[in-house]
Design a protein around this nucleic acid. Structure first.
Lengths: 101, 101
DNA sequence: CCTCATAATAACATATTCGTTATCTACTGG
DNA sequence: CCAGTAGATAACGAATATGTTATTATGAGG
């Protein structure tokens, strides 16, 4: 998903990096923030259930390296992959109105 | 996403086909039904807003043939693609507890 | 120090999405 | 009948996700 971050100067978070300046256009920024938030919730779900990446790999059928790649934002999942990972954790994904903002 | 359907015998809907008999294992069936429902909502969103595939292609940056592929379930979108398509329609996707069942 | 478990990474092969361009069918209105 | 619009498809290359296998880094605890 992203490699530009490697040029960051130390402490800055990825989220801050993206929103900093007009480094990317607003639409792309929104897109990236969406992905960060979504994947963040995925990681939260796993950790909150106390399951390791390896265990989740077993449960979901998605391999541990793939899960690690997703969690570190180095790949953007397909919806089937996201579903496979979320389902054993007791979650799914839904289409909702944007109003939620 | 799916090609087995081509062997269908006429009238049966795809959803019925999938759930018919033990033609696929329960996990996979759940997965497929999830995708059907999700994409269904995506199509609904577009049609309800009265926007054509070509217009949506303009608005989203996703090409019309790609949108057609997704809507006809001949491809499984990545979450960034789904977001791009849903956003101009006023929708997004969210992680929610499975309880909703 | 050592072990164990976890997560991160690497490298490569394979699978699949998406872009691109073009075409085709179906339908609607003039 | 014709023109215009919409959706479906095809074919192919480029981009990218995922599988596979192995390794490395890290931290917790004995």
């Amino acid at each position: 998903m992203v490699n530009e971050m490697d040029k960051r100067n130390a402490i800055e978070t990825f989220s801050d990096y993206v929103n900093d300046e007009a480094r990317v256009d607003p639409a792309e920024r929104e897109q990236i923030n969406f992905e960060i938030a979504l994947i963040g919730k995925m990681v939260e779900a796993r950790e909150q259930k106390g399951v390791s990446q390896r265990e989740l790999a077993e449960l979901s059928g998605v391999k541990q390296p793939a899960i690690a790649r997703l969690e570190s934002l180095r790949a953007t999942p397909r919806i089937d992959t996201l579903f496979k990972v979320l389902h054993p954790l007791g979650y799914t994904i839904e289409i909702v109105p944007l109003a939620k903002r």
